[in-house]
Nucleic acid binder design. Structure first.
Length: 208
DNA sequence: TCATTAACACGGG
DNA sequence: CCCGTGTTAATGA
């Protein structure tokens, strides 16, 4: 809540706009693993991250997943914006990577604010560009990196985003997000351990 | 060559 | 015991 003020002012929003956002938005807490946005949920709101960490996953109709990027404090999900503006449902799901505090903003007011406030328009465009860059990074990983490099990139991204050297995930969960098999993840993690890049415990990976 | 699938043993919580 | 992990063998791209 206190964080909200900080984030809004950090974006150089007009006083009037800050007041509107505080009035119209609503606070939402989501615990780790909780779904924030999904195609079948048909959300009418976009999430602004106040604290914690969200992850954006691409999903197909057969239950396959692919991790795309994280949303950190102060960031919002541009995919949700297009999704709602175009009135389309996309196969993208936003899930809490950690317990997170969000500020949910109704879509129709986002539309209005973009037209009315220059600062908000800039905020949305910048968010767009940042997401786009992250998307390109994810695409590069898939196109150009081998699985072991992708895995290391994934671990480092997680370390950077969470600010923790410890990753509490099973090999199976990692395999799903990278859209590969657990056998491969286990084998590559074992190799990373031999190379002293990581340390492994049950349900827990430490990055060195 | 490297990924996937299935199958199995080990052992920690 | 249950489930996460490590490994192997067979098969495929």
């Amino acid at each position: 809540m206190d964080n909200l003020e900080e984030i809004l002012e950090g974006n150089g929003f007009e006083k009037e706009l800050v007041a509107e956002i505080k009035n119209i938005g609503r606070s939402k807490r989501v615990s780790s693993g909780g779904v924030v946005v999904s195609a079948d949920l048909g959300s009418e709101e976009i999430p602004l991250v106040l604290s914690g960490l969200l992850k954006l996953l691409r999903k197909d109709d057969q239950g396959n997943e692919l991790f795309l990027y994280h949303l950190q404090s102060g960031e919002t999900c541009a995919m949700s914006i297009t999704c709602c503006l175009e009135g389309k449902t996309q196969d993208i799901t936003v899930v809490a990577e950690e317990d997170s505090q969000l500020w949910m903003i109704p879509m129709h007011t986002v539309d209005r604010w973009i037209q009315r406030y220059k600062s908000f328009r800039k905020f949305v465009f910048r968010s767009y560009q940042e997401r786009f860059d992250e998307l390109l990074g994810a695409l590069d990983g898939i196109a150009f990196l081998k699985m072991d490099e992708r895995l290391m990139k994934y671990l480092l991204d997680l370390k950077q985003a969470s600010g923790s050297f410890v990753i509490k995930k099973t090999h199976q969960e990692i395999a799903k997000e990278l859209n590969t098999s657990r056998v491969v993840v286990s084998r590559l993690l074992k190799q990373l351990e031999r190379d002293d890049k990581i340390e492994q415990h049950r349900n827990r990976i430490e990055i060195l």
